[in-house]
């Protein structure tokens, strides 16, 4: 992997349209994640009993959902990387 320590030019130039597009994508994906995370927190705070029910392969909802939140974060991050536009 190439490593550069030299001074790079000042900030990159971006098209305003691309910036707006990327921002919009970020906000949409952010709210998608909020739904998952919020659901988890509400369940844990108000219905902790539901979380201890086994759901898949004998593993309970708390563990499944917890791992799920980590995996979903990565999946959404990869989607974001794909849909973002690069100006130059």
């Amino acid at each position: 992997m190439a490593l550069h320590f030299g001074e790079h030019g000042e900030r990159e130039q971006e098209h305003e349209g691309d910036v707006a597009h990327n921002t919009r994508m970020g906000v949409i994906l952010f709210f998608v994640y909020i739904l998952f995370y919020g659901g988890f927190m509400i369940l844990s705070a108000f219905w902790p009993k539901v979380m201890s029910r086994p759901i898949l392969g004998g593993v309970n909802l708390a563990v499944m959902y917890g791992f799920g939140l980590i995996v979903i974060a990565l999946v959404l991050a990869l989607i974001y990387m794909r849909v973002c536009r690069k100006s130059n």
Partner: peptide, 14 residues
Amino acid sequence: SIGYLAGWIVALFI
């Protein structure tokens, strides 16, 4: 663990 990781979503998307 879940909370610490979720924070990165805010960092990345916003």
